[in-house]
Write a protein that binds this DNA or RNA. Structure first.
Lengths: 176, 176
DNA sequence: ACCTGAACACCGTTCAAGT
DNA sequence: ACCTGAACACCGTTCAAGT
């Protein structure tokens, strides 16, 4: 009765990430994931409690990806914002998932800390949290709408992004 | 062979809206909607092509709600932004749906036009579109994150919102 | 100890048969 | 002309039985 495992949790999560982007949230079925890792659906329940936990693990993977991307920028608000937008372009479904499913506690910290530091650099410690939220809300909304096709009035999206980034910087200056 | 209809499209859409808020997108099943309007699931296919079309109709209803709310503000950017946020608080699932499903063409116009006018008032016609997108992206992101519980660093959300609104106004001033 | 087929409850959707 | 039960394909999930 040896029975070595034919897959691993990491492989299952990776298959989940791939399927999410290729087929959307509804395409991320237990059967499809199982097929990817060469096993039958019931076997997945040895690795995860249920589909919701798998989604949370995929969300955590996405949050870690964001954290890593942010950490390898120059740390300026513009750099952080651009890195976050790139993540949204590279993994649109994961971006959306992060606004729905809750990743592991602890991981979100890696996403917010660099932004908080950049905001503090600009407006000082007093209003750093509010300034960070201002910037985060803007870029989150911009990329969400961009991915959803919600900018339906034509015009150049890059213009709108550059304009927003410039106005953001102008808005976040030390208090008089 | 008279057979008068036992429900109507409007009733079906209204039931869809209610169920969406009460049970989330996954709770909005054809069987649950059918139960609400006193009919069996197959009968719904006399009113809508499939579940996706029902979701689009619910999204259209939500977009019209937003349009009406925006139209009954004072037309200032602050007024519009506050009305949009109130919509998100009153119908959180519908708010999320608007960032996913596409409502009927034409309806989005009613949502963006008042914002465009307010932006033009502030920065002039040259950059009105970009300014409107700046404001829209910020409030969309703020409410999305608020509803998702993504502001995980404590602090007062009303402070963050008021700060953002104030910085938004400061950022959107006529060019020098 | 992991894997599997079979089973169950639940979906969306179609369609022939009722009235 | 609308409504329905029955049916089909597809989910997520459980579990006893295999190795």
């Amino acid at each position: 009765m040896p029975a070595p495992e034919r897959t691993s949790l990491a492989e299952v999560v990776a298959a989940g990430c791939d399927l999410l982007e290729e087929a959307g949230p509804t395409g991320l079925t237990m059967q499809a994931v199982a097929g990817r890792v060469g096993v039958r659906a019931p076997s997945l329940y040895k690795k995860v409690r249920d589909r919701d936990e798998l989604l949370a693990l995929v969300a955590t993977d996405a949050a870690e990806d964001v954290g890593t991307r942010l950490a390898s920028t120059d740390g300026t608000l513009a750099g952080l914002v651009r890195a976050y937008r790139s993540f949204g372009h590279d993994r649109p479904e994961a971006f959306r998932l992060l606004l729905t499913a809750r990743p592991d506690p602890g991981t979100p910290q890696r996403m917010s800390e660099p932004v908080l530091r950049a905001a503090e650099e600009l407006v000082g410690p007093e209003r750093a949290l509010e300034a960070a939220r201002f910037a985060t809300a803007w870029v989150t909304g911009f990329v969400s709408m961009e991915l959803a096709g919600s900018f339906h009035l034509g015009g150049d999206l890059e213009d709108a992004f550059d304009y927003g980034l410039e106005r953001l910087a102008a808005a976040l200056v030390p208090p008089a």
